[in-house]
Amino acid sequence: MARRRNTETFVVISPTGKVLLTAFFALFLVVLYLPTVLLIVFSFNAGTVAAFPLEGLTTKWYGLALHSESIRQALWASVRVATLSAAIATLIALMASYPLARRHVRGKAVISALMLVPLVVPTVVLGVALLILFQKGVIPIGLGLISVMIGHVVIALPFAVLILLPRIASIDKRLEEAAYDLGASGLQMFRRVMLPLIVPSILSAFLISFVFSIDEVVIASFIAGDQPTYPVYLYSGLKFPEKTQTLIPVATIMIVLSFLLAIAAEVIRRRGDRKLEGR
C-alpha cells in the first residue's frame, strides 16, 4: 500500500520537487499564521503601542478589556445580532431550499439568481443602499442593531441556501414518498424523516452565518448608528493606534473563538456527509 502511494507521488513530482514544494508549503503556513501569532503575542505586550521591541509581558490589557463597559456592550450587541441573523437566515433558507430542491417552481432560475446575487454585490454598495433605505425612512426602522441584523440576513441567506439545498436534494426521494404513503402529513414527514437527516447541515448553515455576522464590519459600519457591533467598535479603534492596545486581547479571544466555531462547523458538516453516505 505504502509503496503504491510512493510511486503515485513519484509520477507527479520529482524527489527534489517534493522537497522544494514541502519547503514552500511550510513557509506558506508560517506566513499564514504569523499575523495571528503576533496578535496573541502582542495581547500580552506591556507597552502601549503594538510595535517592536516588546516591552515585557503583562495580562493587564485583558483585565482592562474585560472591565471596559463599551467593549462589553459592543460584544453583547454582536452576539445578539449574529445569533438572531444566523437563526433567521437559516430558517428562511431552510424553508426556501425545500421547494427549490423538490418541487416544480415557476421561475426557479430567476429565484435562484436573485438569491445568489447578494454574494457578489460589493458590501460597500449594499451598506450604502441599506443606509438610504433606513435613514430616509423608506422602511421606518432607523439605524441600529435591527438594521444590521437585517443586512446580515440578506448576505447570509445565499450561504445558508448553498449549504442546505444540495443536502436536501441529495436525500433519497423514496424516503419522503414512503412517509406520505404511510399517512404522514407534510409537517410530520419533515420532522420525522427530513429533519434528522439535515440537522448537521442546519447547524453548519447556522454556524457559517453566525461566523460571517460576528465578523462583518462594512455593512454594520454604515447602518449601526450609535450602537456599534464589536467589529465596528474594533474598526473605529484600529484607526487610532493609541486605542488599539486595549482592543487586542478581546480580538485574540475572538480569533480563537471564531476559529473553533469554524472548525466545529466543518466537522459537523463532514460528520453529516458520512452519515448520509452510510445510508
Partner: peptide, 27 residues
C-alpha cells in the same frame, strides 16, 4: 482545513496584524 481556517477568523484583525508586521517599528 488548516489552510482555510485563517480565512474564517476576523478579517479586521488579520489586516491589523499586518500593520504590526510592516509598520515603521514592525517585525
Amino acid at each position: 482545513l488548516i489552510v482555510i481556517a485563517p480565512f474564517l477568523t476576523s478579517y479586521l484583525l488579520r489586516v491589523f496584524a499586518w500593520k504590526v508586521i510592516l509598520g515603521d517599528q514592525g517585525l
